[in-house]
Design a protein around this nucleic acid. Structure first.
Lengths: 222, 222
DNA sequence: GCAAAACCTGACCATTTGGTCAAAAACTAC
DNA sequence: GTAGTTTTTGACCAAATGGTCAGGTTTTGC
């Protein structure tokens, strides 16, 4: 099993910075650890607040070794963002014009809420990046994301014209869904303080999901 | 006009740290400048990311002089948070059991949205503090805020029992209002990138307000 | 087994940064 | 004007931190 995986040849250096060549087992493992540790640190302390030493410790290796894999702090930060970005924006894609609006929206809301539950750190990192003016991901927001939103807004618009959805501004409606679902990750501390519970708790998550479904769908469906 | 304002006497030192004695004109002015500059810096760069030098510059004075008014960075951060906190949590108070639910909720949503428009930096600072685990305001969240939410949840509950509001979880409904309104401040960068507009723009704010009213109220009213 | 490459380490350094302090300047009350 | 107080400054410092580097260790391909 797993034969012929080594493509690298002698005399062909494979510096870890260059993503081209196939990474070794060690590299894969360490890269994953580093990203994980960095996500944890960056999301809870911000870019400046997280130190490379802390991240290295969270990743279970020395600072020097970590810097062997990622040139510097900024490159590491960008790598973490790149890792979470796709998964973060992707779910919106599942909205299809040929779907039943109620079913599709319900599923989308649930998926976003589960994402907030399962990856709260990613949510917070993303939020932090945007709140600081999105210095790293600005182009993605005004490029691919903008197009994606335009596309899905058109889908909502179509449903409205078919009389299956109330006439509300589709873009603002999308923002509403993002806001209420991500809130459960980003403001988890506040929610814990106020309710004693968190979206990590199954019953609480169900209650949240039910409320979002009721309000958003009854508020939007015709 | 403005007679007899000087209460201080000779031989009675008035160190700026002590909030007791009446502050001088200069002190009042400088304190205000500092808080303003600090809010701007902290909200856009986070606690660690903002340097005392930058804050001092934003406040239009030397670092040393700023530290004459606030012992250290942490004290300054706490002062900024204290300044915005009351205004931030207060609006919820206007929900009164004797109000008409539709009118009251509409007004509350609008007020929160206007707050996001007028004080986006405060919103972002608050969000950042909570996202990092609310190290400074934890006690306020689990104390006064928790009580306030419990009280207002009871108000919503009463409206539900009177059949004037759909039976949804009142606490989650409050969270929804917070989430969608603050989103316009906290994610302003993303909203700008995607739509080209911001809640700072009047027409855009109206559109947002209308959408929030429609969805949240139609989703909650009976 | 033996290069060569990949991986890892600890010592080291330059810079940034929060904060101190002594003394000068400006203001206030009389 | 002058003495006492408040305000302001700039020089200074210690700690933290991001990053480098020379060299050691392990792994890999053959």
């Amino acid at each position: 099993m797993e034969l012929a995986l080594k493509v690298r040849r002698k005399g062909q250096k494979n510096k870890p910075e260059e993503a081209g060549a196939s990474p070794s087992r060690i590299q894969e493992r360490n890269r994953a650890r580093i990203i994980e540790g960095a996500l944890s640190c960056f999301s809870s302390k911000g870019f400046k607040g997280a130190t490379v030493e802390q991240i290295a410790e969270a990743a279970g290796m020395s600072k020097s070794n970590m810097l062997y894999y990622y040139r510097n702090k900024k490159a590491l930060y960008e790598a973490v963002l790149a890792t979470i970005l796709e998964r973060w924006l992707e779910p919106l894609n599942q909205l299809d014009p040929s779907d039943d609006p109620e079913t599709a929206l319900k599923a989308y809301i649930s998926e976003k809420l589960m994402l907030a539950r399962d990856e709260p750190q990613a949510s917070r990192l993303f939020a932090g990046e945007v709140m600081q003016g999105a210095p790293v991901i600005a182009k993605i927001l005004s490029g691919p994301l903008k197009e994606l939103v335009a596309d899905k807004a058109a889908t909502l618009q179509k449903w409205m014209e078919e009389g299956r959805l109330k006439a509300v501004d589709p873009v603002h409606f999308i923002f509403m869904i993002w806001a209420v679902t991500q809130h459960y990750a980003d403001f988890d501390t506040q929610i814990r303080a106020v309710t004693g519970n968190s979206v990590a708790d199954e019953d609480f998550a169900s209650k949240a999901e039910a409320t979002l479904h009721t309000v958003l769908l009854q508020g939007a469906l015709k």
